[in-house]
Design a protein around this nucleic acid. Sequence first.
DNA 1: CACGCAGCCTGGGAGC
DNA 2: TGCTCCCAGGCTGCGT
Length: 281
Amino acid sequence: MPELPEVEVVRRGLAQWVAGREIVSAEVLHPRAVRRHLAGADDFVARVKGRVVISAERRGKYLWLPLSGAEEALLAHLGMSGQLLVVEPGSPPDKHLRVRLGFGDGGSELRFVDQRTFGHVMLSPLLDGVPSPIAHIAPDPFEASFDDDRFAAALRRRRTEVKRALLDQSLISGVGNIYADEALWLARLHWARPTQTLTRPKIAELLAAVREVMTAALHQGGTSFDSLYVNVNGESGYFERSLEVYGRRDRPCSRCGTPIMREAFMNRSSFSCPRCQRRPR
DNA sequence: CACGCAGCCTGGGAGC
DNA sequence: TGCTCCCAGGCTGCGT
């Protein structure tokens, strides 16, 4: 389940293996993979050919490849199960291969593989260096343009629960269910804590926790649970060994030994320590 | 405008 | 063995 650290691992792989190369062929094997490219699959294929990949960029969980020519980029979101794989041409097709790009040097090809098809790729204009479809997404906490004070003020204005706010990509991008739970545990906050009751120091602590868990994950190459997520070379990350609460129901909290509990939240799961993270009254 | 939630999608696993 | 149901969850679109 790719969140910011996993997407960053993929971005680095793309920067290393794909930047500077000219796309000469493209094939869309499943229309849903390009559903956000409103002009259709044929248009996507026609317009991507002949373009040189300039670099690999990322904001939150989105990543994009600026292309030569017009101010345009190949934008990708991995969804839950998407992978961008750099493989030798002619390698056996993956079961869930959705899009394939070939390069003029005849070397490795880029494949978008996605079992659950929540991910997508598209071509989009760049506005001030950012793809237009993600203009409404807030910077992620590792960008220079992320403003801690502004985030704190926006959070306190909200009338919602702190975990909902963490998952709201218009407030802070890149945080998904796994790292939200991990950061809340580290900051000793219950997921249902009303945002308007958070003090500025507590918000600073929460932001530090978000950055800490993501930095740790990045150092280990991302998180992987069911091998659906792999980096650009097809190698799984190993961060799941370091998770403190996510997926650890009934196992002891490493701080106090209390069994971790799982609660239903937003049609998914929240994991927390009932002692370290006291539910608000 | 702010907030919350259904729906999208597939395969693995549990239960019968 | 084979069927049904549940679960994973980021994001969009829509209702309140």
